[in-house]
């Protein structure tokens, strides 16, 4: 038994394991960063999974057609934002229930991605190349982890830092938080609640699209229907897990990324745990974490934006 533990220990701190964790975590981080901004503005968009899968299909289509990963990524962003635009028009413009619309968006997105991606199934592209800096990347142990990732990884980290600066260091970010905290007051002070929320929703959609596009452009170099396999839902849970704070979101995303890889990585060790159980790990972890959070909520204080999910109609 101690030998097995040592083996697991070695595995977890091996360069190859950490590299896989980073790639598995990046789409979670991208999607949940966008959703964090959306929810901070007081809108609950449950359509992340749908926007991600459409982003994946369009991203692959763009990259395959143009031969450029960058074009593919942009396709993914635009597709995610366009889909979230529909959500925004319905929930903000027409004051439709956000939960129902978000769920519908996911179902719609899954279908739409199948349609868009149908003729690309079985095709392959050259995946995004990894960074290579002459000396730095060759540092043993950490070189490839810090300086040898694909560009999406660096974008996701920069995005998160940008969101943190925006929320806590800029006036616009303050206004966004204010709108999420109390839309009636923000309206009374003369802030355009619906316009701010629409922009947040579009941004969140773009992030989800980019997260989806990451999968066929960098994670696996091909498209298969349903390839997001619940990552959008995990991203949603991550926002709650992070109690709507960008700093905690990084920890959460990498933790979940690690858990989802663990099953695969432990396979060669022959631990005698059925593979199906290992595959359940990320989802079980989601449920466990959410339960733990709601248990500690009483003392820690709720961080949820106070108007999250409630419809706002200005009285005129």
């Amino acid at each position: 038994m101690p030998e097995t533990l040592i083996n697991i220990f070695h595995l977890i701190f091996s360069e190859s394991f950490i590299l896989t964790v980073v790639t598995a975590s990046t789409p979670l981080l991208l999607a949940s960063s966008g959703e964090l901004v959306v929810e901070r503005s007081g809108v609950l968009n449950l359509g992340v999974e749908g926007m991600m899968i459409v982003g994946a299909a369009c991203g692959f289509a763009g990259a395959w057609t143009s031969g450029s990963i960058l074009v593919g990524a942009l396709f993914g962003v635009v597709a995610g934002a366009a889909l979230s635009g529909v959500f925004g028009i319905l929930t903000l413009g027409l004051a439709v229930n956000q939960v129902a619309t978000g769920l519908a968006l996911t179902i719609f997105g899954v279908g739409l991605s199948g349609l868009i991606g149908a003729k690309f199934v079985g095709e392959r592209i050259v995946p995004a190349s990894h960074l290579h800096l002459p000396v730095l990347t060759d540092i043993p142990g950490v070189g490839r982890i810090l300086f040898g990732e694909d560009p999406f990884v660096y974008v996701s980290v920069a995005l998160l830092i940008g969101i943190w600066l925006f929320l806590y260091r800029s006036r616009s970010g303050l206004v966004l938080r204010a709108v999420g905290d109390n839309h009636a007051s923000a309206h009374a002070l003369g802030y355009p609640v619906l316009r701010i929320r629409m922009l947040a929703v579009l941004f969140g959609g773009g992030c989800a699209g980019l997260a989806g596009a990451y999968l066929p452009l960098a994670y696996t170099p091909f498209f298969i229907p349903g390839m997001t396999s619940g990552r959008g839902w995990i991203a949603l849970a991550l926002v709650v897990f992070a109690s709507w704070r960008p700093g905690r979101l990084v920890i959460g995303a990498y933790l979940f990324g690690a858990v989802s890889i663990l099953g695969l990585a432990l396979q060669p060790l022959q631990l005698g745990i059925p593979q199906q159980v290992m595959n359940m790990l990320p989802y079980l972890a989601t449920v466990v974490v959410l339960v733990l959070i709601s248990r500690t909520r009483g003392t820690a204080g709720s961080a949820a934006p106070a108007s999250l999910g409630s419809v706002f109609v200005p009285d005129r």
């Binding site: 006036r171 303050l174 938080r177 204010a178 905290d181 007051s185 923000a186 009374a188 002070l189 802030y191």
Partner: peptide, 27 residues
């Protein structure tokens, strides 16, 4: 000054004051 205050519960006093003023002025 509203009867049901137009304040943001989860923001600080300073942030609440700044939100009521035009954005041209520095914090």
């Amino acid at each position: 000054v509203f009867q049901h205050f137009t304040l943001f519960e989860n923001l600080t006093v300073a942030e609440n004051v700044a939100l009521g003023l035009p954005s041209t002025e520095s914090f």
